[in-house]
Simulated assay, not measured.
Amino acid sequence: MTRIAFLPVIAALGLSVPLAAPARAEANLGTGGKAVYADCRDGGCRCTLSPMTTDEVSALIGTAPPEGARDWVVVSYADSYFWSAQSLEDIDSAMGGDGRCDLEVFAPVVPRDGTWTGKVRTTKIAGCPEGLAQTLPGMVSGMVFARRIAWGGVFHPAQLNMNPSDQVVNWTEIGPTMFQGKLVAPVQNDMLSVSGTLTSSLVDEDSAVARFHLRVGAGSGANAAALAMLGMADCRVDSTYQFKRSGA
């Protein structure tokens, strides 16, 4: 299967729309609320019990299973994440596998040392200047970096910066593989108020994901009406960062 065949795959798996707002769902009660994860490639999938709950996964990927849903699976394919109500066997078959995808249960996931490559894409722009809304997606889609990371057996999203010594984000650990963060020294003055919040998680030993919400608004002494005319009274940008281990 190629990227051209991606939309038929979505339909075949009964996947939920990826841009829906996160919502709480009564899902995966048989796994203690933990999300079931199918990491799929052309030719089949690897299925694991995630260390994260369905709510935590929903916050990271930006969409959740429908209200009242049970036993949904989050599927990773072609650099995207979706929820599917299909069985693990059917998901594996749809991806070209042999129809077997035994659920693997692991101790907390540990990232593997090696060369990690990061890509970023803008998923939502609202209330921003028209020119920015038109040019930003194309600009960030070309932002690719790669560097070798020695994790020391512990995941921390600061390692995913191009320069880990730069203290750009204050991170708070939610669990061994999940963090929340806030921008260090956001802009706060009479004209503009700039803030940013992040979530980051280790998906498996070879991949991680982060979501970044940036807001630029009017400061306490600003002329909000004038800034609104410029598209800067309440500019919000949501971005998704995807990281993959690509080699030793």
Rank of each mutant, 00 (worst) to 15 (best):
T2C: 15
R3C: 13
A5H: 12
V9I: 10
G14A: 09
L19K: 05
A20Q: 11
A20K: 02
R24M: 15
A25Y: 01
E26R: 07
G30A: 14
G30M: 07
T31C: 03
A35I: 02
A35F: 02
A38C: 15
D42P: 04
C45D: 02
R46Q: 12
C47Q: 06
T48D: 04
S50P: 06
T53L: 11
V57I: 15
I61Q: 00
I61M: 04
A69H: 02
V73Q: 11
Y77H: 09
A78L: 05
F82V: 14
L88T: 09
G99L: 03
G99R: 02
G99M: 11
E104I: 15
R112G: 09
T122L: 13
T123G: 08
G131K: 07
T135S: 15
V140I: 07
S141N: 06
V144P: 00
F145V: 03
R147V: 04
R147P: 00
G152K: 14
A158I: 13
M162S: 09
N163T: 11
Q167N: 05
Q167A: 14
L183H: 12
V187I: 14
Q188V: 11
V194S: 15
L198T: 03
S200C: 10
V203K: 06
A222T: 08
M229S: 06
G231N: 03
M232P: 11
R236P: 01
D238G: 01
D238R: 06
Y241I: 14
Q242C: 03
R245I: 10
